[in-house]
């Protein structure tokens, strides 16, 4: 691990002042479940590490009539142990419950989940976010791409977004609170992620000197919601595919639907076609399966990951059925 300076501010103003102008110069530490291994492997070699855990204002899980606030430093365990989350936002609860290992649930944070780096093994082996060899040749399309993207990879980014929470937050129309030198701002969860153009960029809409402070989820307002993860018992402890669904039922029929897929594209994938396919219909095995087909209609599997298309279909279908419950 390369030597670095370690700072523990106690306010978000102090924290932001310690951040750099360029990505990678300074890294932010919350739960540390991802950052430490990236540093040990020299995937990131920051000059300074800013520990956010001393900033009390960033923690906590609070539910009120206006909705849910998850502090960026709230741990997975904090979220799991909140009965209001379990009752009103089963999509969030299930997504967090799926995060494996008690150690990661105890240490990992909401903000860290959103900002963790891709699990792509080429990236983790030092080939960069776009996984290219020294000649600029992309390694993923004819490499071992069994866990890579099946959607949205035309930008040249083949990794999948690793966030467990993101699909649920998008389905629930959450906003992400950001703080930087210019003050606080909010970004729709659905707009927060992006496919980077290279290693000088990140996978989310932050400036290098901004931090995530909180997540704000609207009151459920009768939205039935669920997350279904296909998490096979392989070593890689991230789901192979997941789907989060929020449904507003009018009588027996779906009045409105928001569906987002995880682990299938460089960004959490909003499945508009599946939403349209479902609206106006009663939820049945058949309509759920049809929505799942629609969600994956544009899938372009790589050489070794056709199976993920099937798993994503299963996730969408089962999440819809679970939400309609």
């Amino acid at each position: 691990m390369q030597k670095f300076e370690y700072v523990s501010p106690t306010t978000k103003e102090q924290a932001v002042a310690l951040l750099g102008e360029n990505w990678g110069d300074v890294e932010v530490l919350a739960g540390g479940t991802d950052l430490l291994s990236l540093m040990k492997d020299y995937i990131t070699t920051p000059r300074r590490v800013v520990n956010l855990k001393g900033i009390a204002a960033l923690s906590g899980v609070r539910y009120s009539a206006s909705g849910l606030r998850l502090g960026a430093l709230a741990t997975f365990d904090d979220v799991l142990s909140n009965t209001a989350v379990r009752r009103n936002y089963p999509a969030i609860w299930a997504a967090v419950e799926g995060v494996t290992s008690p150690q990661i649930r105890a240490m990992g944070t909401v903000g860290g989940d959103l900002c963790q780096r891709p699990r792509c093994w080429y990236y983790r082996a030092g080939y960069g976010l776009l996984a290219k060899d020294e000649t600029g040749h992309a390694l993923v399309p004819d490499g071992d791409n069994r866990y890579h993207a099946i959607l949205g990879h035309n930008s040249g980014a083949y990794f999948v977004n690793p966030s467990s929470l993101a699909p649920a937050l998008i389905a629930l129309a959450a906003k992400i609170g950001v703080y930087g030198p210019k003050g606080a701002r909010q970004v729709d969860a659905a707009e927060f992620f992006r496919a980077p153009g290279g290693d000088g960029e990140r996978e989310y809409q932050l400036s290098p000197n901004e931090i995530v402070t909180e997540v704000l989820v609207p009151a459920p307002g009768g939205m039935k919601n669920a997350t279904y993860e296909v998490r096979q018992r392989e070593a890689l402890d991230w789901p192979l595919a997941s789907a989060s669904v929020a449904l507003k039922l009018t009588g027996r029929n779906v009045g409105a639907a928001r569906i987002a897929l995880g682990h299938v594209a460089p960004v959490p994938w909003r499945a508009g076609a599946a939403e349209s396919a479902l609206v106006g219909k009663a939820v049945t095995e058949q309509t759920a399966a049809a929505a799942a087909e629609a969600a994956l209609a544009d899938a372009k599997p790589l050489s070794r990951n056709a199976y993920k298309v099937q798993l994503a279909r299963v996730a969408v279908k089962r999440a819809i059925l679970a939400a309609a419950g």
């Binding site: 494996t100 093994w121 071992d144 018992r233 392989e234 070593a235 890689l236 402890d237």
Partner: peptide
Amino acid sequence: YDENGQLITGTLMDYAVPK
């Protein structure tokens, strides 16, 4: 091991022991 004899399952992230 891959075709170059590289160990692909070099960590418990890649080698699946039952939990």
